[in-house]
Amino acid sequence: MAKSGLALKALQWFIRGIQFLSCAVVLALFSYFLAIASRNNIGIPTWSKAVEGISGIGVLYTLLGLLLLCCVAGHPFASGIAIILDIAFVGAFIYVAQANRGGASSCTGTVNTVFGTRPASDSLGSGLPNFHQLCQIHKAVLAVSIIAIAFFLLSAFMEVILVRHRRKESRFGPSPANNYTSGYGRRGGFFGRFRRRKGSEEQVMNPNVLPEHTHPDQVRPSYTTEGTNGAHYNKYGDSGFQHDGQVAYPDRTSYPSTGQSNYGYVR
């Protein structure tokens, strides 16, 4: 089970890495937009600053997730916070993809960019990209945003799996059910009844397993020996108590064989 836990952590680390790269790409491209606007005194819409902020926070969050994954993976509190943030970033990058929907076009003719709607052949100025190139940048941001949405959904699902795996590890520790190794033991509950019973097979495979002892309540009283369990049953169905080789019947007042009454002894 240690190997499975390590594999789950490695998979989540890979997912967080893709998220980090996606956020970093969006941050770098929109930082380029903001740098062009700042150097050339070009106005840009407010939503571009929002995209810059979302991608920047995403970089910090995914980087922190990569660093803490080795020590807090599967902890219910940490995973709960991560799931909430993952779902929040799904919504945030849906907004980023919608804001860069202009990149879904063929980037020919009239294009819609962060600097306005212009013909693709127009340029922002000398030494600056034209609107066709700006449209291509929006196309890249749109594609990366869709990838980020998919991987944030996947990471939220993986956090649930990590929590369940950690709880099972703590619930089923070393015991005879798992040969004193870390991992799962026998499951109970509703689904446990569908699991095949392996008790007899384990005894066959392990010659050191001793058979289960008989409990006192599993012993059937013998009715053929008078000395067994101190009780005797005669042909009339009465029980007596053995005493010095004789059997006493305190419950009957008389017996046909002896004629004795009350507490008589019959050989």
Rank of each mutant, 00 (worst) to 15 (best):
I36E: 01
P211C: 04
K9I: 12
G116M: 03
N234P: 00
A37G: 10
A248G: 07
T224I: 10
G103F: 03
V266S: 06
E202A: 09
A248I: 15
S222M: 07
F157E: 12
L63T: 04
A7E: 15
Q12A: 14
A78D: 08
G5D: 11
H213L: 12
L162W: 05
S105I: 01
I146P: 03
G17T: 10
V111T: 00
T108C: 05
R171P: 03
F157L: 15
T46L: 13
A231F: 10
L128I: 03
R118I: 02
N208I: 05
G189W: 08
R220C: 08
A231E: 15
G74I: 04
I161Y: 08
T228Q: 13
K3V: 08
H138T: 05
L85R: 00
H243M: 08
L154Q: 07
G264A: 14
F151L: 02
F194N: 08
I94C: 07
G116V: 01
D122T: 11
N262Y: 13
I83H: 06
L162V: 10
A24E: 14
L27S: 05
G230I: 05
G102D: 07
N41E: 13
G58N: 04
R193D: 04
V163G: 01
C71L: 12
Y61L: 02
Y255N: 09
S79Y: 10
F89V: 01
G264W: 11
L64E: 14
L27D: 03
V247L: 05
F93K: 03
R164P: 00
V160E: 08
L21Q: 14
T228G: 06
R267G: 01
A248R: 13
R193T: 12
I81Q: 09
S106W: 02
R166I: 01
P45V: 06
K139H: 15
F157D: 06
S38E: 14
V204R: 15
P211I: 01
S79K: 07
C23W: 01
Q136E: 14
N130F: 05
A248W: 08
G230P: 06
H213S: 12
N112E: 12
S31D: 13
D244V: 00
G56S: 08
D244S: 11
V209Q: 15
D217V: 11
A97T: 07
I146N: 02
Q133L: 10
Q12C: 07
F172C: 06
I149R: 02
L34F: 01
L6W: 07
D251F: 09
C135Q: 06
P211R: 15
G80Q: 10
F115Y: 04
Y249R: 00
A82N: 13
G109H: 14
G227R: 15
R39K: 14
